[in-house]
Write a protein that binds this DNA or RNA. Structure first.
Lengths: 226, 226
DNA sequence: ACCCCTTTTTGAACGCGTTTAAAAAATACG
DNA sequence: CGTATTTTTTAAACGCGTTCAAAAAGGGGT
């Protein structure tokens, strides 16, 4: 216990020093300009030592994605506690994440380039990122299950996963969004979640159920992970 | 005229030699292993000379995307001539493209990594790729306008652009598809176009029109290009 | 204090995409 | 034909992410 803690202490500290240096350089100069040599230097290390702590440069930036997920949990939970309408809950879950990720907007583009390489370990669909994905889907499930909206039975179970993929698409849009503070994405979230909730409402009508269930079935069969 | 033709002849030939060498190496060894030095050597050039003809390595691979678009035009037009149902027409336009692109499946992933870098000139939403994008949208417009289906008036005009974005998403799915010959993507095209056509049919019902028009309005306001 | 084993760091190198100044080849023109 | 201009090629270099064998540092057991 104490042994292990002591054992790992050095590594954890160095790791944190690298992360601090990286973030500073990323924010000041962007991902490309923040070379591993500069990061190493600012951390008081040689490049080789840096690679002892992080497998690749991309793994450094992936850490900030994980961190943004962790950081959004508190405001996200607060939203869930204060709202019952599905629309507000889902909008809240997504917007709180975008909020905490805002400082990383520029550098996240670099991560996206990695994420969009099919088969890459850091892709959002990969095995390596499974835990984070499933945590996120669980949170969305809380958002769905705790809502006051009436959701068609055949859909409710699968909705969280669909919303997760939807969230990924929103994040992609956000990365491409060049408006100040990415405010256009915020509006898109409002408008598109509104549309999703409307579709769910319509799905409660007897004639429409088959359409929504077809959509859910399509997702279930073709979802790009697992 | 003749002068200009003669003028460009050398460059065009060399360009083609580079493309031939690139394709050979891409297919044999993949994008990463096909280094610019090897491409140059196989073309009988030095790396510097290769860069005289192609701005970056990515521009070489972008050429194959352009070519796949050109190559799919003939079978695509044949499909349009032989089918009137919207579903068949749209499915045909997308599947013919996937068909001709099949040999480039592996190497297209590298292009996608570029395409998914926000702001990159070779992104599908960029100014530099505008011509190709607009050509493709025009073709999809032919597919829509020549169909026998009754399409709600407020939607028909915008449908081609929406279908183009849909096609982009299909291509992304195709890139991630690891099934043999990407046959899963083919099924996805069938199933999802079916769903789109169903939605259009439902949209003709008076109560549903507002929903579809909302969807179209959303796209129009938030489309990620122009 | 010593040895042993693991963790961490070093320094040099590799191969990559790309750039560049200068040379060479091709072409245009009087 | 000879000269001026443009197009193409060369050879060398740059900085990058990354790797690796060897050295150093750290820590436990005797």
């Amino acid at each position: 216990m104490t042994m292990n803690a002591t054992k790992n202490q050095k590594a954890a500290e160095t790791r944190q020093r690298i992360l601090d240096a990286s973030l500073k350089l990323f924010l000041e100069t962007g991902y490309e300009q923040a070379t591993m040599r500069k990061i190493a230097q600012l951390s008081g290390l040689t490049p080789g030592a840096t690679y002892y702590h992080f497998k690749t440069k991309e793994h450094i930036i992936f850490h900030f994605y994980e961190k943004s997920y962790q950081d959004h949990l508190e405001p996200a939970r607060a939203t869930l506690n204060n709202n019952k309408a599905l629309k507000t809950r889902i909008t809240g879950l997504i917007k709180t994440h975008l909020d905490v990720a805002r400082p990383y907007h520029q550098i996240s583009k670099a991560l996206f380039r990695v994420a969009s390489t099919p088969g890459h370990p850091l892709s959002p669909f990969s095995e390596e990122t499974r835990e984070l994905r499933e945590e996120n889907i669980s949170l969305l499930r809380e958002g769905v299950n705790g809502s006051s909206d009436r959701i068609p039975s055949g859909i409710k179970d699968k909705l969280p996963e669909i919303l997760w993929l939807f969230k990924i698409l929103i994040i992609i849009y956000w990365l491409f969004d060049t408006t100040p503070d990415q405010e256009k994405t915020d509006r898109l979230v409002d408008r598109s979640v509104d549309l999703i909730v409307r579709l769910l409402a319509i799905s409660n009508l007897p004639g429409m159920k088959s359409f929504s269930e077809r959509l859910v079935g399509l997702f279930e069969e073709f979802k790009p992970y697992q």
